[in-house]
Simulated assay, not measured.
Amino acid sequence: MDPELAAAVAALPTPTPPEGTPTLEESRAEFNRVIALPFINWQKTQVPEGSTYTVRDRIVPVEGGGIPVRCIVPTVEDENATFPVLFHMHGGGFIFGDIDLDDYYLRRLAVDLRITVVNVEYRLTPEYTFPTPLNDCIAALKWVVENTSDLKADLTKGFILIGDSAGGNLAAVLAHEARDDPFFSGRQPTGQFLREPWLAHPDSIPERLTPHYRSMEENAKHDLPLAPTRAGLDGLMLVYKPPLTDPRFCPLLYPSQEGLPPAYFQAMGLDTLRDDGVVYERELRAAGVKTKLDLYPGVHHGFHAQFPTIPIATKLWDDARKGVEWLLRGGE
């Protein structure tokens, strides 16, 4: 384990095991207490001056209702200025998280990179099962295309999908769906940023690729916070309910990976999901897609949110900005 991370983990208070099986509300409250609120408090130390951006929440119509999207637009002297777009989907295993989870960090990116950010609050499982979260994001992506004027957006300057963990799954699948949907003809995403993405269940991996998936077994022996386990993924499949053979859950199963936008990956060395990103990057590269992979040794899934100030997390945040810039240059 990375030595600074090991020290930070060792300093954590010993958790008190819950009595009985926690309810969904209790589990979400614990996620917010242990992960979301400390992460948000750190982000607040990074937030730019309020005069440098505007924030507006909108409701995107979806089947059965509407979902919030938070739009962050840089403020510049030129009132006619337009910006590329960063389309963001939060992590949380499709069960946890909302648009507040990464909000202040995204405000920082919007200002520093002069990019409009659209942050999506897709509906969560178990209240909403597959493919509702994906369909919500597709509806929001189409909403962006139809509302570029309101967003001061110019999609020809960049249209980047970004997601962490479950959000990385959605970003990878959206890249495929937009590639194949005539609605996006001439307005397709120009890049995808997949951080520690969950892209397959062990039982959905194509047989030819199973020898390359070693991280689930290699890293299962580490008792690490936030580590996805085989049992945990099995439980998530039971509530999210994606068919194992559906490429909208496992993008490795699409007939072709060709024609996708450049892809930037961040993968964690001790993550049981490490090879989801590593193998998918290799597959995209083999299909002629421009790719860039940053692999962080000695760290686990979600470490950057739990310990955002340790040196390797600082490097991850710096690399993330460079990764977006690389995507804005078309992978050059």
Rank of each mutant, 00 (worst) to 15 (best):
M268N: 13
L260E: 13
E196I: 13
R329C: 07
M216F: 10
N119C: 08
D103P: 04
R107Q: 13
S204A: 12
W198G: 13
T309L: 10
M89C: 05
R187G: 04
G64S: 03
L270V: 03
I59E: 09
E258D: 11
G302S: 07
D103N: 14
D78I: 05
F87A: 02
S165G: 09
T16H: 14
D271H: 08
L199E: 00
P297Q: 13
P38L: 02
L253A: 01
P84T: 05
H304R: 14
A7V: 08
E217K: 12
T21V: 11
F249H: 14
P242M: 03
D223Q: 11
N41S: 15
I35V: 12
L284R: 09
Q266L: 11
L113F: 10
G92C: 00
G168L: 07
A305P: 05
S204N: 02
P131I: 00
P18I: 11
F39W: 11
V76C: 06
H176V: 02
N119M: 08
A10H: 06
P228E: 05
H176M: 08
A10E: 12
G97S: 04
D180R: 01
V144M: 03
T272L: 04
T125D: 00
R108H: 15
N41V: 12
A6V: 07
D112Y: 10
E218P: 03
A267M: 08
G93C: 00
A6Y: 01
D102Q: 15
A305D: 06
L209M: 02
T21F: 11
S215P: 03
P133R: 06
V118S: 01
E63K: 15
E218L: 14
L233T: 06
V173F: 07
V47W: 03
E146T: 08
T132Q: 15
G50D: 15
G167N: 08
L155M: 05
N219E: 04
D164K: 13
V34W: 11
L124F: 02
L113W: 11
A313R: 08
I67W: 05
F265V: 02
F87I: 00
P228L: 05
G91I: 01
F193P: 00
L295W: 03
E281W: 06
L101Q: 14
R107C: 12
E79T: 10
P311E: 09
V117Y: 03
D234W: 00
L109P: 01
Y105C: 09
A166F: 06
T309N: 12
A139Y: 02
S165R: 08
M1T: 10
R179L: 10
L199Q: 01
D103K: 07
T116V: 05
A320I: 10
T52D: 14
A7C: 09
C71Q: 04
F94H: 10
Q266N: 10
P242H: 02
R329Y: 02
W143Y: 09
K292M: 11
T148S: 08
R230G: 14
P311T: 14
G269K: 09
G64A: 00
L293K: 01
T21R: 15
Q306P: 06
W42V: 12
